[in-house]
Amino acid sequence: MDRLKIATVWLGGCSGCHMSLLDLDEWLFELAKVADVVYGPLVDTKEYPAAVDVCLVEGAVANTEHVELMHQIRQRTRVLVAFGDCAVTGNVTALRNPLGSAAPVLERAYLDPANLRPALPHEPGVVPPLLDRVLPLQEAVPVDFFLPGCPPPADRIKAFLQELLAGKAPHLTGANLRFG
């Protein structure tokens, strides 16, 4: 069998889920025996490749760039995994949603605290505009599996990937299904 192509993506999240992935320590070597990481913050690929087998998405969909990227990823990926609470529920990234739109968030971040030339960042084509509402992954694209946790502990990630690599539909239960 061909080696599996795995991608990881970091959207609106704190990178904690990726840290937790690195906490897999030596099991990462086991993973490397069967799979290649073809895209993500841990490798230097500019373009999301075609025909990816598994993509772990950390973070919520928070700006227009995320939306476009997710549409592309969904098209090019066989199994899409919402990786960690921000991707699954919006979590901390979505704490701003009750404010109703992006404007009050930007004002709070860039105008209120500034005492020298307050201005909102405006670089079309460089800084992607924020969405008015942060979306959990499944509100943007159909998601195949959910791996909750903030962050998901390394053991939980391992249990999940092991089932996936064995060709089974991962089915987390009990304490492995805890949010937070």
Partner: peptide, 15 residues
């Protein structure tokens, strides 16, 4: 669906 893939994603072997 805005994301509609050209061909539906095939499952992993055994999935």
């Amino acid at each position: 669906e805005p994301w509609k893939p050209a061909t539906p994603p095939a499952p992993l072997p055994g999935l």
